[in-house]
Write a protein that binds this DNA or RNA. Structure first.
Lengths: 213, 213
DNA sequence: ACCTGAACACCGTTCAAGT
DNA sequence: ACCTGAACACCGTTCAAGT
């Protein structure tokens, strides 16, 4: 207040030398670009420019573009896990909760298609897979395993290896999500949600005719 | 035979002006690069060079790189349909044939991971989807629908909308294939095949406990 | 420690020009 | 009709240099 408004506090100066938490800013900017304009549109020059930073400043915080994408993917798996746990807990940790998880999974993917693709695509970029990305992906998968163990305890799911059942369920929602994202379902969102509901029901009883039919 | 061997038939001259069927040659070269070194390694300059042709010759036959990739994807869907039909017909068009189709699907994807990715990824490249690619993809999907209709007739599958059942089954094998390709299953091929077998069985009877359990 | 700016080796695409 | 070769506007990455 005592200063003339020509010299603002440092946090307002866009041309200052050090950039608070540049790594975090770069990551958020990358996520924003991917969300709004797709992964193809993500360029290191572009994110640097929006942050008012040189295009090579990024290399102080990420070894290369693949590492940046791995961080984006990691962030996505964290969000996905949160959505799955919310759905499970807010719908009674039973059959309804299980269906809600499936819907939440597919909705997350369709609401963040480019981000979702990076989550699974960036594991193969770079020679060795980013261990932190793998860790976060395991966390999301574990949310599914945990739910299945509860369903098994309540005799709603066969008592087989929960990891195997979880992989099966994961493949189904991942398959639906990817088909929808890639435009293989006619009316993307509506068909994906209908298919998810159908899948949850047929997952329970199978596609063989009912015994009394 | 009457000509001296210094002047061979035109088809043997590698430096001739016109290139028999350049479009076909470009497509095959692109498939070869994608198979052996991945989609990232596919450059128009590269395929031109291996064919001894300028890098812009390609634009006489494809509107751009996305169109070339769409043609690659189209070719892949044709091969996939052939594999599915083979498996179905050679295993008795029944329950065994259905499982064989599932295995054939996943094996095709794991044997041609980059090609498989292009098949599904190139639908979103380009603003309007290549109609020939869509057509070929529908053909592969139809092989699955046809099999399900037979299974329904023989009372091995519920008599619901076969398109819906087919989408469900497709999502499962696609999900397994994508997870395996992206390195989300520990031992890629072994886990994918085990999971496929498991899926076919649980697909039949569901994951709910058996009625007499 | 952190960032810059020029340079390098790549891309896809276009277009006037050749045959 | 079909292809060439130079040019253009982009990339990611490196590295000596600045503060």
């Amino acid at each position: 207040m005592t200063q003339p408004h020509a010299t603002r506090p440092a946090r307002k100066r866009p041309d200052r030398y050090h950039h608070g938490d540049l790594r975090r800013a770069l990551l958020q900017a990358a996520v924003r670009v991917i969300q709004s304009r797709g992964t193809e549109a993500l360029t290191l020059r572009g994110v640097g420019e929006t942050l008012g930073v040189s295009r090579s400043a990024l290399y102080r915080h990420f070894t290369d573009k693949a590492a940046l994408l791995a961080a984006v993917g990691q962030e996505g798996f964290g969000e996905l896990r949160a959505r799955l746990q919310e759905a499970w807990e807010q719908h009674g940790r039973g059959r309804a909760g299980f269906e809600a998880m499936g819907m939440a999974y597919v909705r997350f993917a369709l609401s963040n298609p480019s981000h979702y693709r990076v989550m699974f695509g960036s594991t193969r970029l770079g020679d060795l897979r980013d261990p932190e990305l793998v860790e976060e992906a395991s966390g999301a998968f574990q949310a599914l395993v945990d739910a299945l163990v509860v369903l098994q305890r309540d005799r709603l799911v066969r008592r087989e290896d929960p990891l195997q059942v979880a992989r099966f369920v994961w493949a189904i929602v991942h398959g639906i999500a990817m088909l929808a994202i890639d435009g293989q379902l006619e009316r993307q969102r509506a068909d994906a949600e209908m298919l998810t509901r159908y899948a949850v029901e047929r997952l329970r009883t199978g596609i063989a005719p009912a015994p009394d039919a």
